[in-house]
Amino acid sequence: MRIRVPATSANIGPGFDSCGVAVSCYLYVEVLNSSTRWQVDHSYGLSVPSDQDNLIVQTALKIAPKLLPQHIKVTSDIPLTRGLGSSSSAIVAGIELANRLGQLNLSESAKVKLATQIEGHPDNVAPAICGDFVVASYQGEKVDYVKHYFPDCELIAFIPSKELATSKSRDVLPHELTYQQAVAASSVANVMVAALVKGDLVTAGQLMEQDQFHEKFRGPLVPHLAKIRQISHEQGGYGCYLSGAGPTVIILAPEHKTDKIVPLLRELDNKAAVEIFHIDREGVQVF
């Protein structure tokens, strides 16, 4: 059995902790054979556990505590702590591992709820499960989500070599907004989502750059954001936003613009990776 989970790009500007899209970069979990203990083969190094303390296994055992130990192999193209949902993909993989090995027959909505409870918010885990563009909310124990087709475009990702821990990125956020600030911030998010549903990437791109929830507070931690946004404006990108908690920045652009944008991004930092992603429409898959 082989499980495939897509990376995700969350927030999309003002859709803070609620909007996310699945992208064509993947985590794979292959079940090799049963074992006397949990064994996880991977290439992450000593910083990532190779036994029952691995996040994938921890998640699976949380869902199905009686699972028998397995020898599994994990490979991934998703960079760690870069704002592309690496931890969410591991959580989703763990849930699917428990679902298949434990024969739980979990529904999509049950998977989304479990993943959200473990992760704390649905913006990454929901699209990793469902695929495509997902808007979700998590209030108390209730998770509501809607999947919709994300308009066709190129997602050009600028992925710095240095990581940015989510905890550090969250520490700079304010604890509260005024009523007026909250109304303004939510109205921007609402119009952006409406534009995406309509397929209007021009309007959506303009709105995703007007976020008032997190990007202006995280800006000092991600100094390249302003430079990349300038490149996007000058070269005809639809819009540019900080992916998740950063430091990855994504430009949404028409396909014919990538040849101009990519070289300029590479000139910014020769240690950074520049990748072109497409929308993953399927979410988690088992082969």
Rank of each mutant, 00 (worst) to 15 (best):
E141F: 03
S137M: 04
Q230N: 13
A98R: 00
A184Q: 14
S88M: 05
I159C: 02
R37C: 09
L32H: 03
P247A: 09
V191T: 12
V40S: 01
S24Q: 08
D144G: 05
I231G: 07
G283R: 04
I56N: 01
G239S: 06
A22P: 06
F277W: 15
M192Q: 14
F287W: 11
F217W: 15
C153L: 08
A93G: 13
P49S: 04
A253G: 05
T81M: 12
S243P: 00
N33T: 13
C25A: 07
S137V: 10
D152I: 04
V74N: 07
G237S: 11
T248I: 10
A22V: 08
G85A: 02
V284T: 08
E275I: 12
L265P: 01
A10P: 02
G140T: 11
Q139W: 07
N124S: 04
F277L: 15
K168G: 00
I276P: 00
C19Y: 03
L201N: 06
G244N: 08
V191E: 12
F158I: 08
L61Q: 08
D144E: 15
Q117G: 13
D144Q: 15
P174R: 12
V40K: 01
K147M: 01
S76I: 11
G13M: 01
L264R: 08
N11V: 08
T36H: 13
G83C: 09
N105P: 00
S35E: 14
L265Y: 09
E282P: 00
V40C: 04
D77Y: 10
Q212H: 14
L252S: 10
I251S: 05
D259P: 00
H233A: 12
S109W: 05
A253N: 06
K198R: 13
L264M: 12
T203V: 14
S34A: 12
H121M: 05
G237I: 07
S169W: 09
P247Y: 06
E234I: 09
I129P: 02
G237A: 14
V284G: 00
A128D: 05
E275K: 15
P14F: 03
S86E: 04
R281C: 00
P174T: 09
L196M: 10
N99S: 07
